[in-house]
C-alpha cells in the first residue's frame, strides 16, 4: 500500500515512496529528518506539529502525507534566513522569553507567522484566541502573547 508523494518543503522539492498511512508529520520528521516539528498529542489538540501548508497554519499530525501532495510546506527549519539570522517572529520570542522547554515553540512560531500576516498589530486577546490550537505547559502563555504581539508588529514594520 505504498504511494509516491511529492511536495516542496522549505523551498526544496522532495518526493518519496511511502506507506499510504504515513502522516505528514511522520514524513517530515522521520523521512526528511526535519525534527523541529514535534508531536505532543494524538488528538490534534496541542499544535506542536504546526507547519504552514501553502502559507496556512495546519497541524501536520492531522493529515496523511498524501493530502499534502503538490503542496508548499514550510517548517520551523525554513523560517530563519539562510545565514542563520532569526526571522522577526523568532527574534520576538527570544527577546520576550516566549519559550522555555522549547517543545511547543516551533508550532507556536509557525502559527504566529500565519496569524501575523492578517493581524499586523494584534491585541492580546486576538493573540490568545489565535492560540486556541496550541498548548504550552511551561510559559503560562504570558510571554508567548507578548512575543507574538511584538513579532507581528516587527513583521509589519519590516514590510
Amino acid at each position: 500500500m505504498s504511494v509516491k508523494v511529492s511536495m516542496k518543503v522549505n523551498g526544496q522539492p522532495v518526493s518519496a515512496e511511502l506507506e499510504s498511512r504515513t502522516l505528514l508529520v511522520t514524513f517530515i520528521r522521520e523521512h526528511l529528518r526535519l525534527t523541529g516539528t514535534h508531536v505532543g498529542c494524538d488528538t490534534a489538540q496541542c499544535g506542536a506539529c504546526t507547519v504552514l501548508m501553502n502559507g496556512k497554519a495546519i497541524k501536520s499530525c492531522s493529515i496523511v502525507a498524501m493530502q499534502a501532495e503538490g503542496a508548499d510546506i514550510l517548517t520551523i527549519e525554513g523560517v530563519a534566513k539562510p545565514d542563520g539570522t532569526l526571522h522577526p517572529m523568532q527574534a520576538a520570542f527570544k527577546e520576550n522569553h516566549g519559550l522555555q522547554c522549547g517543545f511547543c515553540t516551533p508550532g507556536m512560531v509557525m502559527n504566529a507567522l500565519d496569524f501575523a500576516k492578517s493581524h499586523p498589530n494584534p491585541t492580546d486577546q486576538e493573540v490568545r484566541e489565535a492560540l486556541e490550537g496550541n498548548l504550552c505547559r511551561c510559559t503560562g502563555y504570558h510571554n508567548i502573547v507578548k512575543s507574538i504581539v511584538a513579532g507581528a508588529r516587527a513583521m509589519a514594520a519590516a514590510k
Partner: peptide
C-alpha cells in the same frame, strides 16, 4: 536573553524522540 533559545527557535533542539 537565553543562550538555549536559538536552537529551539530554529528547530535544532534535540529531544529524545529526535535521536535516531
Amino acid at each position: 536573553q537565553r543562550k538555549e533559545d536559538y536552537r529551539f527557535l530554529t528547530g535544532a533542539g534535540q529531544y529524545t524522540d529526535d535521536v535516531e
